[in-house]
Amino acid sequence: MNNNKNTAEIILDTAQSIVQDAGFNGFSYAHIAEKVGIRTASIHYHFPNKEDLGEALIARYHRHFISAIAQIDTETQNNLEKLRKFTLLYGGPVQDFCTCLGVMLSTDLATLSGKTREGLVQLFTANLEWLERVLEQGRRVGHLNFKGAADVQAHQFLASLQGAQLLARSFRDLSRFNMIAEELISALT
């Protein structure tokens, strides 16, 4: 059983890497099998079809995100510092000129299963709710300064980071992501 879990995680790791580079429609089980060194039947054993794989990918990514923001909340009480750490979450995939799983899945939205689309909405909702809370708390205690509603600011912040990923990927230039992320933070002080 433990071996099955390890194989499933290796399949998910490989699929996530491929999706973040080529999109959900840019691969087949044969691509994963070749990279992992297993037969496609092994992948089908864990994920009977691609929809099952997509649902597992977004669910796992959402769990990792919840864990990451919980760690940010534990590490610091300063809301500006929380936002800096949040931008690092989005900066991670950019190092390989990829985007986060959510951005790439969004580009294939029309062909995703209903559960995968729902998982994507839940992921983005978790991002926005956390950002809104941090922004509102930060403004209340004087860590942050911005005009307008915190929920609008949260949407702008998230959309800017996602767009920054796409620009960095398109230009193959990490500095474009960093420039946008730094300006987002700077604009809130």
Results as ranks from 00 to 15, higher is better:
S17K: 01
T111H: 04
V141A: 02
G91P: 03
R139D: 06
A154C: 09
A150I: 06
E81G: 00
V94A: 00
A168G: 04
I32H: 02
G26E: 06
Q77T: 14
N6C: 03
E129L: 12
F157S: 08
H155C: 14
G26T: 01
T111W: 04
L112S: 10
N49G: 08
K5T: 12
V94W: 00
V141S: 07
A150V: 10
V103M: 11
S67W: 08
N25C: 04
F47G: 02
K85F: 09
R140M: 09
S67K: 15
A154S: 13
I18Q: 01
Q122H: 14
I58P: 04
I180S: 00
A168H: 00
D96A: 11
D96N: 15
R117D: 05
T76G: 10
D96C: 09
D73A: 14
E132I: 01
F65V: 03
H62L: 15
S113T: 03
P48Q: 06
G54A: 04
K82N: 10
A41V: 13
S67E: 15
Q162S: 07
A56E: 11
Q71D: 15
H46D: 03
A110G: 07
G37C: 05
K115S: 12
L166G: 04
L161P: 04
G163H: 09
I185S: 10
L83G: 04
Y90R: 02
V134D: 04
G114I: 07
L89K: 08
R133H: 13
A110H: 03
L184H: 09
A187F: 15
A187I: 11
R133T: 13
T116P: 01
A59W: 02
V36M: 06
R39D: 10
N127P: 04
S175N: 07
